[in-house]
Amino acid sequence: MKAIIVGCGRVGARLAMTLHVEGHDVTIVDKDRMAFERLSGAYGGKKRVGIGFDRKILVESGIETADAFASLTNGDNTNIISAIIAKHIFHVSRVVTRIKDPERAQVYRRIGIPTISPTIWGSDKVREMFLYSGLTSHYTFGSGEIELVAIEVKQGLAGRKVADLVAPAEIVVVALTRAGSSSIPPPETVFEPGDIVHIAASASAKSRLEAMVH
């Protein structure tokens, strides 16, 4: 994959190094040459000094044939402008941007720019760790609307059925691990103490799920 990353901060630098190590063709762009010092010696991809919406810089970075583009600078406005250009002018198939202002992040998502908002994600995560310490999130889908959680079956849940947990459009039991081997359990399966249950749940259903399993 050919990827262009604009913004060599902590996230940009880490992403660039990870993709490079995985064998992808990476170009990282930052307006400040000093920012490239965040890249370790292991980074062998390209570096360019410039701004993320400079046509010349983008073309020289190979945007016309790029598969992926991420704008991760400190400026929300710079990020969104770069992302819209990449998507609508250069037609890069995968474009992602980071927007700190949660409200703007939603607007941009609506106009078709995949947007990650560390503000929303971070505050939701802390809230979750405060409130639902019993449910560990293993994976989040999309912007965190759906989460994959794992729970160990204790008294509260033992003896109840998979069907008791399921709520249409909100909670699904994805897998059950019993004595080290996992399966997709049919609805009539009865939970036993020590089972590990993997559940996909919507964020809005988590407090209900919490109440059900304890």
Binding site: F53, N77, I80, I81, V107
Partner: peptide, 16 residues
């Protein structure tokens, strides 16, 4: 005085 800000103002004016 910032081009990216001017673009975002227009974008929001139109879309929102």
């Amino acid at each position: 005085g910032e081009d990216e800000d001017n673009l975002v103002v227009c974008l929001l004016a139109k879309t929102e």
